Amino acid sequence: MSTYLLVHGAWHSGQSWDRVVPLLVAAGHRVLAPSLTGHGDRADLLGPEVGLDTYVDDIVRLLVEEDLTEVVLVGHSYAGMVISSVAEQVPDRLAHLVHLDAMVPDDGENAIDVIPMTQLLIDQAARSGTWRIPPLPELPPPAGLFGVTDPADIAWLRTTLSDEPVRCFQQRVRLGNPAAAAIARTHIHCVAGAPAGRRPVPATQPVWELPTGHDCMVTMPVELSELLLKLA
């Protein structure tokens, strides 16, 4: 039995994994898919002080409190920032990092460095006098809502989304722990409309592809689960 810890991206919640969790559990594995501070069942905790460090603390605390080891830590989208930072703090608890169509930062970078258009969202929030950034809007197909185009799926996904605080995009990762750098890493790219900010992957790190939009856990949960099970 392996332990999978699934970390959702910006604006999402632990509910985004609802179609993946049962498939991994049915294969005999332990699966955790928490909502980060300010999201899902913790939406009441959202505030201007919430940032990347808050999210990293959420995941590190869960790993320690549950005494989890040999964990396959999966980060979707923005959560690539989160899992990279978690690995710096508790590398001994992790067996594998999976960047799922995710940001892959270098030391000292923030989300703006990885995807510069993020600054536009922050500027818009500043003009509105708020620290809150609402979810990205639905676009015409094939972009849809985070790559989801089925009307029923879009309607469900909307119910799971919430605002993101500006600070989470501004805080920077601090990397450099040799033990973290030694953790095995795999990248899964959703190739139906590649997102801005995707960077070349080192030749030593496998890259798998899914022919779908960004929120593959909604659009291709079976195929995604099959890939994740290869890491068990």
Rank of each mutant, 00 (worst) to 15 (best):
A181N: 07
V64Q: 13
R61Y: 12
W156L: 03
A87C: 05
T219K: 04
H8R: 08
D123I: 07
L73T: 06
I83M: 10
D163N: 11
I112T: 07
D18M: 13
V98C: 11
V148L: 00
M217T: 04
L161I: 02
L62C: 13
S162P: 14
P91V: 04
R198E: 13
L46G: 15
L139N: 11
Q124I: 01
V72F: 06
S16N: 15
G144F: 02
V60N: 09
R93Q: 05
V21Q: 03
P105D: 06
A95M: 03
V31D: 02
A111S: 14
A43Y: 05
T37N: 03
G75H: 04
H96M: 03
G38W: 01
A194Y: 12
A111H: 04
E109Q: 15
M81A: 02
M220D: 09
T130E: 02
D58H: 04
S77P: 08
P34C: 12
D150M: 05
L36H: 06
W17G: 12
H187E: 08
G75I: 07
M81L: 11
P91S: 03
I112R: 01
L6R: 05
M117E: 14
L6I: 06
D92T: 14
T212M: 01
V56F: 06
I83A: 03
L36W: 03
N177C: 04
R198N: 01
T69G: 15
L62H: 15
D101P: 09
D107E: 04
